[in-house]
């Protein structure tokens, strides 16, 4: 077991290394002359040359890559081309805001989704279950920006209860922060809950077709207890896997939701930097998002293995 986890950890580190190469290649080599790109087509040749020297573009790419990588590992992502300030100083507050949004969403969505999945499975085939199943499918196929726009239309434009723009500042108290977070979080919670609930339902459904459940049914154990106790216990592994994967999928939701609410998070920073072609900032944000995603996928894999009852037995032949 420990071997498998170590092996997966090694593979993850290797993938991160490859990702860093790809991000560097995409941002510094793919566009051609980065200095020209940064300054736009009306820049004078002197300015372009000066920026090339300032960015060290006269040195070989491999040397620049290694310097960038070593710097990034130490938290030094270089300087922004637009604000000229260190990229790391732009990141910290944005990263905390995005972590807050994603964290609150996860804390609400995961218990809610598992509960909904379990309850609909208990009420299998009834009208409520059928309605819920179709709703889960519909909501998980709905773009986040439709839900977010509808929430803004209802709660900000028509009712005027909540702000349409999530303005967060360092001095704001808990109440202000909560009000600013409410709509962005709700948009994400709806989509994530639908996805996890749908998968919970599928996992429990496949467990319920196992022979030992049939045995329990024949013994006369009520369905509620079979679903809530026998099936749920064996669903923990796949569920942990599903949850970690969905938290990883939050990345794309966060990008859209931060846009619509002008939420001052990391995704918003990255989109702004893509628009202004501030490539050092794009590189840093891309690496942080990719690293988070890769680590969550690793976690999903490890959790699935840890909770898999088959892995508890000594089966050395399965080591690969």
């Amino acid at each position: 077991m420990a071997n498998i986890i170590l092996w997966r950890l090694g593979a993850t580190l290797l993938i991160l290394l490859v990702v860093s190469l790809l991000v560097f290649w995409a941002c510094e080599i793919l566009p051609g002359d980065v200095a020209q790109v940064a300054l736009g087509q009306y820049a004078t040749p002197e300015n372009v040359r000066a920026l090339r020297l300032e960015m060290g573009l006269d040195r070989p790419a491999i040397q620049r890559y290694l310097e960038w990588l070593v710097g990034a590992l130490q938290g030094d992502w270089g300087r922004s081309l637009v604000t000229k300030t260190p990229v790391s100083s732009l990141l910290s507050e944005r990263l905390a805001n995005t972590a807050l949004l994603a964290g609150v969403t996860t804390l609400i969505a995961v218990p809610l989704a598992v509960l909904l999945g379990v309850v609909t499975t208990m009420w299998n085939g009834r009208a409520f279950d059928r309605a819920a199943t179709v709703s889960f499918l519909a909501l998980s196929a709905t773009p986040e920006f439709l839900l977010a726009t509808l929430l803004v239309l209802l709660f900000a434009v028509n009712l005027g209860w909540l702000p349409a723009v999530a303005y967060l500042s360092t001095g704001s108290d808990f109440g202000q922060t909560a009000r600013a977070l409410l709509l962005p979080t709700a948009s994400l919670v709806i989509v994530v809950t639908a996805q996890i609930a749908r998968m919970t339902r599928a996992i429990l459904g496949s467990i319920l077709s196992q022979p030992y459940i049939e045995m329990a049914v024949l013994k006369g154990i009520p369905r509620q207890r079979i679903v809530g106790y026998h099936a749920l216990r064996n669903a923990v592994g796949p569920l942990a896997n599903v949850v970690a994967l969905n938290v990883a999928y939050l990345v794309s939701g966060v990008v859209v939701v931060e846009t619509i609410f002008a939420y001052p998070g990391l995704a918003r920073l990255m989109i702004d930097s893509v628009q202004s072609r501030d490539l050092p900032v794009v590189q840093a944000c891309a690496m942080i998002f990719c690293a988070t995603y890769v680590v969550l996928i690793l976690l999903a894999d490890v959790l699935a293995r840890l909770f898999d009852p088959h892995s508890l037995a000594e089966r050395p032949t399965d080591a690969l």
Partner: peptide, 20 residues
């Protein structure tokens, strides 16, 4: 394919748009 699948797609999109 392992590498491609371990990247968040929207972030890949943002990086490529930044470059091209």
């Amino acid at each position: 394919v392992d590498v491609l699948l371990s990247l968040p797609k929207i972030i890949v999109g943002l990086v490529v748009v930044a470059a091209l």
